[in-house]
C-alpha cells in the first residue's frame, strides 16, 4: 500500500503525559496508510505562556516549526494532535497573514538564530480535522476489523480545538467542525461501530491550563466534566486533546479521592478507540498508560 507522509508536530505533551495518544495516533494513521513523520528537531509552540512573555516570541516559536516542515519535508501544512498547539499555531498563522510585517519581523529573528525563514503561507491542521477530511467515516468503516459494538462513548473536544473561531475557522465551511457542537469525532467513532452518546459537556473546559496555578478550581472543572459524562451513561469518555487527557486521566487518583464515585469515568483518546477497531492490541494503542480504568471498561464491553 502506498504510504502518504504527513508532517507531524506532536508537541511537548505527546512526549510526556500524552504518550498513549502519540502511540495510538501513529497506529491509527498507519492503519489508514499514512505515516505521521515527526518534524525533525521540532520545538515547543510557546503555548499560551509565550505571549505573556513577549508578543513576537509567540509568533517566532510556531514559525520555526512551520519553516522546518517546509524546508525538510516540503510540507505546506503540518498536522498536530494537540489542541493547545493547534490554538497557538493557528493564532500565530492567522495574525501573521493579517499583518505581513509580522512575518518580516519573525524572519529577521529566525535569521539571527540561524534558522530557516517562514514563507508566511504554510499552516496548521488538527489531526482530527485532517482524519475527517482526508479519510473520513467511509475510510474508517472500510478498515474496521473489530467494531466497537455496544460501546457507549461521550466525545470530549475541550476548548482549543474549536475555540476561538477567529483562529480555528470552526464553522467556516464543511471542512471545519461545528463551533459550538463539534461532531467530527462522533462521526469517525460511529463509523467504527461505537454508540456515541449526546451530552452537554463536549466543549467544556477541563481546567487543565491551571492544573498547577489554581489547582482547586482546576480540579472542580475536571470533576464537572467527568460527572456529566457519567450522568450521560457513557462507558468511556474519549478526547482529542492531550492536555485534557492529562487533566482528567493523569490526575484521576487526585480527583477520585476528592470527589468520590460520582466522577468515576474511564478516559481514553479517540485514536485508541479507532486503533482498537482497526484490530490493534491494547499495547498498540498504549491502553496500559491510562489511569482511570479504561482497559477494564473496554474489556467489559468486549472491545479488547
Amino acid at each position: 500500500m502506498a504510504v502518504a507522509k504527513v508532517a507531524y508536530f506532536p508537541g511537548c505533551s505527546l512526549e510526556g503525559f500524552g504518550k498513549s495518544y502519540d502511540e495510538s495516533a501513529k497506529f491509527t494513521a498507519r492503519a489508514l496508510g499514512v505515516e505521521l513523520a515527526t518534524i525533525d528537531d521540532y520545538s515547543c509552540c510557546g503555548a499560551i505562556e509565550a505571549k505573556r512573555a513577549d508578543e513576537l516570541s509567540s509568533y517566532l516559536l510556531p514559525a520555526r516549526n512551520l519553516a522546518l516542515a517546509k524546508k525538510h519535508m516540503n510540507a505546506d501544512s503540518l498536522v498536530t494532535p494537540c489542541n493547545g498547539c493547534h490554538y497557538t499555531m493557528r493564532r500565530a498563522t492567522t495574525e501573521m497573514k493579517k499583518r505581513p510585517t509580522l512575518v518580516e519581523d519573525v524572519n529577521q529573528l529566525l535569521g539571527e538564530a540561524g534558522e530557516p525563514a517562514y514563507d508566511g503561507k504554510s499552516d496548521v491542521r488538527h489531526f482530527l480535522e485532517y482524519l475527517f477530511n482526508e479519510h473520513g467515516p467511509d475510510a474508517v468503516k472500510a478498515k474496521v476489523k473489530r467494531p466497537l459494538k455496544g460501546l457507549k462513548v461521550v466525545t470530549y473536544y475541550g476548548c482549543l480545538y474549536v475555540r476561538p473561531k477567529i483562529y480555528s475557522a470552526a464553522g467556516k465551511d464543511a471542512r471545519h467542525d461545528n463551533p459550538e457542537y463539534p461532531v467530527f469525532m462522533d462521526e469517525l467513532l460511529r463509523a467504527a461501530g461505537a454508540e456515541v452518546v449526546e451530552w452537554d459537556g463536549k466543549t467544556d473546559c477541563c481546567g487543565g491550563g491551571h492544573a498547577l496555578g489554581d489547582e482547586d478550581n482546576s480540579l472542580k472543572l475536571s470533576a464537572s466534566v467527568l460527572e456529566q459524562a457519567r450522568q450521560a451513561g457513557a462507558d468511556v469518555l474519549t478526547t482529542n486533546c492531550p492536555l485534557c487527557g492529562a487533566a482528567l486521566d493523569v490526575r484521576y487518583n487526585d480527583l477520585k479521592s476528592r470527589f468520590g464515585d460520582s466522577i468515576q469515568m474511564p478516559v481514553t483518546y479517540f485514536t485508541q478507540l479507532l486503533g482498537l477497531a482497526f484490530g490493534g492490541s491494547a499495547k498498540d494503542v498504549g491502553l496500559g498508560l491510562q489511569y482511570s480504568g479504561a482497559s477494564e471498561a473496554l474489556k467489559k464491553r468486549g472491545v479488547v
Binding site: 505533551s13 512526549e15 510526556g16 520545538s43 515547543c44 510557546g46 503555548a47 505562556e49 509565550a50 512573555a53
Partner: peptide
Amino acid sequence: FAEIFMDQVTNHGRIEE
C-alpha cells in the same frame, strides 16, 4: 508557572511536563 515554562522553552526548546 509562566516563568518556569518560558525558562524551559528558552533553555531547552521543549517542555517536560
